[in-house]
Design a protein around this nucleic acid. Structure first.
Lengths: 222, 222
DNA sequence: AAATATTTTTAGTCTTGTCTAAAAATAAAT
DNA sequence: ATTTATTTTTAGACAAGACTAAAAATATTT
């Protein structure tokens, strides 16, 4: 069994490990958890003793098979709780994160299995992120950042890269939501902004926005 | 804001304070929390500094108004989660306690208000214990221990005194559940056991059982 | 009321998870 | 290939919350 703190480290390392295929650095973990590098070194040694990660001094860490499964399970819980909050308790998608951070540490296999059933075995959380199954597997759909689409390409908005509440609230204001069809009308070379068609309206969005929205291409895609 | 540990102390003192109108003793708290008296003294000083209880050396403690409200709120959360587990997640009433002990420490007013609404604003938990409202008030119904009923008295089973899983499982086996009508047929002076009618069957129960079942009298009662 | 038993508190220690400051290793730059 | 910069680790400290053992206060007996 792991403490909440240990679970948070595992989750952080899992997320950071997805992008880099090298070991995850001490500093990267410290930054993500808003803690100090020295604290990370301490914890990482402890987790290595517990066989959930491999640690070589100055070389960063990587999760073992067991560590990976453990981390995926925490993320599974986090995302299922997010679905619950939105679907059953009328939370908006920008309100769920902090509560789910607490709920993810509750220990009860029955609880999470029954919750999964209550929610109808969802495959994605309210931000479009996939929910790992009990074995830690998650199905990755083919999705592209909106910024990478070319003119006339279109698809369904299926996720956000940044899930900060400021970004999500911005999307709410612009009436941009998951499941909507988006077509690229125009792209500006100068600042990377683009005009898109959504809800049968044309709106202009900055490059930063386009780099934080995931689209599942419907046509012209691979 | 309080730590989980502080909350557990407040809850314990609240429960112990209901019976005794004197200060709650250090040892009583220690026993209930399965900890040592010295640990209790430490924590009690800290809580006194936070103005949730009054502490005088060697005289035990009592909750302040604020402490009482805080404790009631934790119990409110605990019992609402218990209802959720039974009503929505197919938990049996003997399985909910440990999970609710974890869930009660989750911090989110919106979460608990929405949960309350989802459950239809229940007034009692699965063991028949009343759920405090947001102000910490709880409605106490008139209930008596089955052991105190006299022959031919009858009423509805509305709660259990002991909510250990062994007792609850015993009740399941005997097909005794909340909401059922129970009539006292016979009482044995020798050992305090009694014969009762329930589900149109006569069964014999020990004094210990009768001392752990709450009945709301329907007739002959006050 | 003195003697004994019990309860409570104090004093000091331990573990977990964090921190700061300094040392050591690695990476980058001239 | 040295020097400089960055990253990482070590060493030592601290707060929270628990513990043991001893001292002090309160209760109970006789």
């Amino acid at each position: 069994m792991f403490t909440s703190s240990e679970e948070n480290y595992l989750k952080a390392i899992y997320h950071l490990g997805i992008t880099s295929n090298k070991g995850v650095s001490t500093n990267a973990i410290a930054k993500r958890l808003r803690t100090k590098a020295s604290s990370v070194t301490d914890m990482v040694k402890k987790l290595a003793d517990k066989n959930v990660l491999v640690y070589r001094k100055y070389q960063g860490v990587s999760l073992t098979k067991e560590g990976n499964k453990t981390a995926a399970n925490i993320i599974r819980k986090h995302r299922l709780w997010e679905v619950f909050l939105v679907e059953k308790l009328n939370f908006n998608w920008d309100e769920v994160h902090d509560v789910a951070e607490q709920l993810e540490h509750i220990k009860s296999p029955k609880l999470i299995n029954e919750l999964d059933a209550l929610l109808g075995f969802p495959k994605y959380d309210p931000h479009g992120d996939p929910i790992p199954d009990n074995e830690g597997n998650l199905d990755q759909i083919e999705k592209s950042l909106l910024a990478t689409l070319t003119i006339n390409e279109f698809g369904i908005c299926v996720g956000v890269h940044d899930s900060s509440s400021t970004f999500l609230q911005f999307l709410d204001k612009q009436k941009i939501a998951l499941g909507q069809e988006i077509t690229v009308i125009e792209k500006e070379d100068f600042d990377g902004s683009m005009t898109i068609k959504i809800n049968n309206k044309k709106i202009s969005i900055s490059n930063k926005i386009a780099n934080n929205l995931y689209i599942q291409k419907v046509q012209n895609g691979q």
